[in-house]
């Protein structure tokens, strides 16, 4: 940034002026460049050392047979070929996608919460706190807690269902219910965070817009779809993007609640499978290939999202 400012300034002058000025300030400029470089160096070097190099390294590793300890053996695309024939990879990918259905559910619930809590409701501070508590709790502790809550024999969930005369399943041990059970837990855990962001966005919408719309005869639903929803769109976008990226990396809950990948591999996420391959089964090269495929998938999805967001840009003057 510092380097472009003088350039812009000189373009308005005559060439001579510019040349004179440049000469006059040459020393000063050089000094500035040095300082600029000095300030830029740490992040750039850090980026190269901690991001570019590891990334390049992992791309290389994905083309090798490597146990993470010894030397690497170049095997070309073999890892990728194996990957696409590995039923567990596809199963894990499907499971990871399945967990994403928690995102729209969570966003809808948290927007509803934010709308309700932005009203003058008695005890709203209390409610905001209660809904936010799971967010600040440790994920590992929460996972252990829910593992017990889902226990088929005496878990809280089935105790509550029993009050209504329902015999609950053994949630985490049944291939049909294991994934939904995890989704419920994730929504529960993430609700407060989205709620707080939405709350800020909802409260930032100028009241005058609602007043004007109301005077024009817009009903509450219209006001929601035409004012609130577009106005909180940046937050929605942010939450969708970060939730998809976060959701694609889901690991801790899986590893704690279903440490073997669930009955019939029903809960294993991709990152869990990557971890399992890399650190338990000494197939670091294969695991890296899998991680790269996941990274590229997330990248593609994110780019699509940014495109869509641009197409639907909403601005207000």
């Amino acid at each position: 940034m510092a380097t472009t400012a003088p350039e812009q300034a000189t373009s308005r002058w005559t060439k001579e002026d510019a040349r004179a000025a440049r000469k006059r300030n040459a020393k000063l400029h050089r000094k500035e460049y040095v300082w600029a470089a000095a300030f830029l160096a740490p992040p750039v070097i850090g980026w190269i050392a901690f991001l570019l190099f590891p990334m390049a390294f992992s791309v290389y590793a994905s083309f090798t047979n490597w146990n993470g300890l010894g030397a690497m053996q170049w095997i070309g695309l073999q890892n990728y070929v194996n990957l696409f024939q590995d039923p567990y990879f596809w199963k894990a990918l499907w499971n990871t996608l399945f967990y994403m259905i928690g995102i729209p559910i969570g966003l809808a619930l948290s927007l509803g919460l934010a709308l309700a809590l932005s009203r003058k409701i008695r005890g709203r501070t209390f409610f905001r706190t209660v809904y936010y508590i799971p967010v600040i709790s440790s994920l590992a502790a929460i996972a252990i807690l829910w593992q017990w809550a889902y226990n088929g024999d005496f878990g809280l969930v089935n105790q509550v269902l029993a009050l209504f005369g329902i015999q609950g399943p053994n949630w985490l041990m049944d291939p049909v219910t294991a994934k939904p059970a995890l989704v419920i837990m994730m929504v529960w855990k993430g609700l407060g965070y989205s709620m707080i962001l939405y709350l800020a966005a909802v409260q930032a919408v100028p009241r005058s817009l609602y007043e004007a719309a109301a005077l024009d005869g817009a009903n509450a639903w219209k006001r929601f779809t035409k004012i609130t929803w577009p106005m909180v769109r940046p937050v929605t976008f942010f939450l969708v993007v970060t939730n998809i990226i976060g959701g694609s990396m889901i690991f801790t809950e899986i590893n704690i609640m279903t440490p073997t990948g669930g009955p019939q591999w029903s809960t294993a996420s991709l990152v869990w499978y990557v971890w399992n391959k890399a650190f338990r089964n000494l197939q670091m090269g294969y695991a890296t290939a899998m991680a790269l495929v996941l990274g590229i998938l997330v990248l593609i999805v994110t780019i699509i999202q940014f495109r869509l967001n641009r197409a639907n840009n909403f601005s207000i003057d």
Binding site: F50, A287, T288, A291, G295
Partner: peptide
């Protein structure tokens, strides 16, 4: 976009180098 990319790929990078 760049930041998001970086975030997404850090995952891949991590598993490769343990850094």
């Amino acid at each position: 976009v760049a930041a998001t990319m970086a975030g997404a790929l850090t995952l891949a990078a991590c598993s490769g180098s343990s850094s």
